[in-house]
Design a protein around this nucleic acid. Sequence first.
DNA 1: ATGTCAGGCCTCGCCTGA
Length: 258
Amino acid sequence: MKIATYNVNGVNGRLPVLIKWLNEAQPDVVCLQELKAPQEKFPLSAIEDAGYKAIWHGQKSWNGVAILSRGDQPEEVRRALPGDPEDVHSRYLEAEINGITIGCLYLPNGNPAPGPKFDYKLGWFDRLITHGKQLLKAGKPTILTGDYNVMPTEQDVYKPERWLDDALFRPEVRSAFKKLIDQGWTDAIRKLYPDETIYTFWDYFRNAYGRNAGLRIDHFLLSPDIDRRLKAAGVDKHVRGWEKTSDHAPVWIELKEK
DNA sequence: ATGTCAGGCCTCGCCTGA
């Protein structure tokens, strides 16, 4: 079973790239972030034509998350992170597919930091930590994946010294990520490639992709029983080199059958 | 400070978020 996450940065603007990649990569399940489309503008028929069933939570202009499945229809569990009824951003969608709970998340960017956006990011992260604990306690096979907007360590950023004050790398955010991991989640990419430089995002500016000036901010967190099934993981880096592409590349894992 | 995108409204050019 192959599961992927991809911050598409506009699902309609990115549709040809998304469909081309789906056909090439053939993932069974896909979590998408940054749809940048209202609920009614989600390109369902194109995605169905590519062979996928989908649930999504759109929003005008910003945010937006979706879960695609080649087999069973994703069975929606929730479409918001618990803990703040005032939070209207569409940044979290959770579904069950094939007995696996899949949380698709788009953690706030948080820049500029400090400031209200950074406070929102930390608050959102706190709610994710609380929910993560509940998920592990529930004891089902679970995957929390998406755009975390955090480089967990210096290994995950091309020039760490330049990012120290950035909302994606500040100590508060790295420590929040560590707090989540320490509950018992496995960072799939880092487990399989402990020493390699692996990026999932390259800025549109300054020829970042050409210079491989990247960041690792899209992550797969696995509960212990999913961790035991982990067979392979990777980044489809070449997709970042396509025309009219997202600033993120798709990230994927492969699981052994039970 | 710069740079490049996407989406949307202030709507064919500028703003914001990233």
